[in-house]
């Protein structure tokens, strides 16, 4: 297999409130001999909020981010579900609408850039599954996760709207019964937990304006995972992670429950990293608000 190389769009969260996500992503890429070229020129994707205020500006900025992957001749990978949604949505709209593409390119031309549409945009999860392959991943496992019951929390923006993700993530993931994360967990020899909330929303996007809504949605998810005997939850989205990890105490309290022990929440690359034999330090486990037991 020739060396897999991608342009990594880190998103903002991985550079600020979830530094462990970037750290662990780079750590497992090294172990798996995948090259990730950081897109340091990229801006924020607008996190599905900028578009509420100024849709055109959101398109231009996301198109600019993709331009830098195109300039390097690489496909882009994302490590945040919402970055994936916004970037893929922009790409979809520009690729389908020549007039809009021309308008966006007129702006980009002012800074010497052009969006061509030559780079695909995928969440790292699907690049791992499709390009690297679960069989190859299985061979790299040195510390099987067989002792762990792991609840996959998929996060809305990687599974819905399904048509968009089927196209860009090149998957047939069923948004009502997704399997990718569960298959990945099985490849790491962990036990994947089946529970109703695996496809549900964590409420992150209304954290500020409707904290009660957000707390209930997050609390329901954690409690459901717990009631189905999960030891740990894993998510491919740092925004879900912020809610599940940082807000865990208040969220669980809001839904009228108490946890016997806190529920550790892992980022996807941290879970993979544990199975590949990365150290807690390499995976940034010390950055969690809800402690991850050694």
């Amino acid at each position: 297999m020739s060396k897999l190389t991608y342009a990594l769009y880190t998103g903002c969260t991985a550079r600020e409130s979830t530094p462990e996500l970037l750290k662990s992503t780079l750590a497992i890429a090294k172990k798996l001999d995948i090259e990730l070229v950081l897109l340091d020129e990229a801006s924020c994707c607008g996190a599905s909020h900028l578009q509420d205020f100024d849709e055109f500006l959101s398109l231009v900025l996301n198109a600019r981010n993709i331009c830098y992957a195109e300039k390097r001749g690489l496909d882009m990978v994302t490590i945040c579900n919402t970055c994936q949604l916004n970037t893929a949505m922009t790409k979809h709209r520009l690729d389908e609408d020549e007039e809009l593409k021309a308008k966006v390119n007129a702006s980009l031309a002012e800074v010497g850039l052009e969006y061509k549409g030559t780079s695909n945009v995928r969440h790292f999860l699907y690049a791992l599954i499709e390009d690297y392959g679960l069989d190859n991943l299985r061979k790299k496992v040195v510390k099987p996760l067989s002792q762990l019951n792991i609840a996959a929390f998929y996060g809305c923006h990687n599974i819905r709207p399904s048509e968009l993700h089927h196209h860009f993530n090149r998957t047939k993931e069923n948004p009502y019964n997704p399997t990718s994360l569960d298959e990945l967990i099985e490849a790491l020899e962990g036990n994947s937990v089946d529970y109703e909330h695996k496809t549900k929303c964590c409420g992150f996007h209304v954290d500020l304006q409707a904290p009660k809504t957000s707390n209930i949605l997050t609390g329901n998810a954690i409690v459901d995972a717990l009631d189905n005997n999960a030891d740990v939850m894993v998510t491919p989205c740092p925004l879900c992670h912020l809610n599940l990890d940082v807000k865990q105490k208040s969220a669980v309290k809001t839904v009228g429950r108490e946890l016997p022990t806190p529920m550790p929440i892992l980022h996807l690359p941290q879970l993979i990293g544990l199975a590949l034999g990365c150290t807690p330090e390499e995976l940034g486990l010390k950055h969690h608000v809800t402690e991850v037991p050694a």
Partner: peptide
């Protein structure tokens, strides 16, 4: 209000840093 400023805040941050100042 908190919701509208949240949407507008993204533009302000991007203008200043490119990436979001959380």
């Amino acid at each position: 209000n908190v919701a509208t400023r949240h949407a507008v805040g993204f533009k302000k941050s991007i203008e200043k840093h490119g990436i979001l100042d959380e």
